[in-house]
Design a protein around this nucleic acid. Sequence first.
DNA 1: TGATAACCCATAAAATTCCATGCTATACCA
DNA 2: TGGTATAGCATGGAATTTTATGGGTTATCA
Lengths: 159, 159
Amino acid sequence: MSLFLSTSINKVDKKGRVSVPSTFRAALGDDVHHGIVIFRSLQVDALDACSLKHLDILSQSLEKLSLTPEMYELIETTIFGGSVQCAIDADGRIIIPEHFMEAVGIDDEAAFVGRRRTFQIWNPKKFKAFETKARDAVRSHNISLSKIIADASALNGGE
Amino acid sequence: MSLFLSTSINKVDKKGRVSVPSTFRAALGDDVHHGIVIFRSLQVDALDACSLKHLDILSQSLEKLSLTPEMYELIETTIFGGSVQCAIDADGRIIIPEHFMEAVGIDDEAAFVGRRRTFQIWNPKKFKAFETKARDAVRSHNISLSKIIADASALNGGE
DNA sequence: TGATAACCCATAAAATTCCATGCTATACCA
DNA sequence: TGGTATAGCATGGAATTTTATGGGTTATCA
């Protein structure tokens, strides 16, 4: 079971190269050879990324939603039209296209944030601010993790 | 199934290594090979930990809760972005990332506290204080374990 | 031909593996 | 029963490997 977990901050060198965290590369498995797909997040000021295979799964599940043709068109253009496939070199690095870097304000450092099947790439400072806010919001909604876990256990017959 | 029970305090060496109590490793069963997942508790000043499999169950149950997309987004970031997968080495040890140690104030000793399907990792002194306070709170509410057990039995038709 | 991307190599830091030691609880035996 | 071997565990340190990151060199393609 390989998921993208945890957050790590890596440097972007003069040539625009960044190391993809080794744990993420491991999670990709054989898919590393096909590189990763990057597109702008629709929700937050960051980039979304996943394996090529996962993008395929995403598009399939999109088809199952009953979206209006206009909405579908919109998503197609935004996500698939705006996505780029990035090769991962022998040293585990990618080059994020210039316009993406600018769009989300990444310069000399990039934060890789795991989100299970996908991950995000942030400007570390922006992410930190977002994380702090997110943490407070989750806490203030009194969503207790242990409660969720208890529910999870119940769903699985208490096993 | 095997649960995480009881508390034990182990030393953190110079390299940041700590032994996971053998009883906890036993409770993990085959899941030891995937290591454990650690994240900051949303409630207390400690770390939460569970098996990778349990995190998967957790994420499934998250999907089933009727959360707003925004809240879902926040939780995903907080939990999955804020968690790390820690490998358990051949000697039964893990390395807790530096920033986690700092965040909850663990230095040379760590208390492993069983919480059935998950466990927590505390600074031993902080845990002791917390435990004392919790105990007092429970007592002041006049809650007794035997009463809880009696109530539970009644719910199950005296079985 | 000039910029960009792909490839190759070097290095320091960090993580992982391997081995040694002392301690404790348990099993075994006279 | 008392003493001794044994196995498992926590812990320390050394050796080895992996990773991130920098730099140079060669293809590639407008």
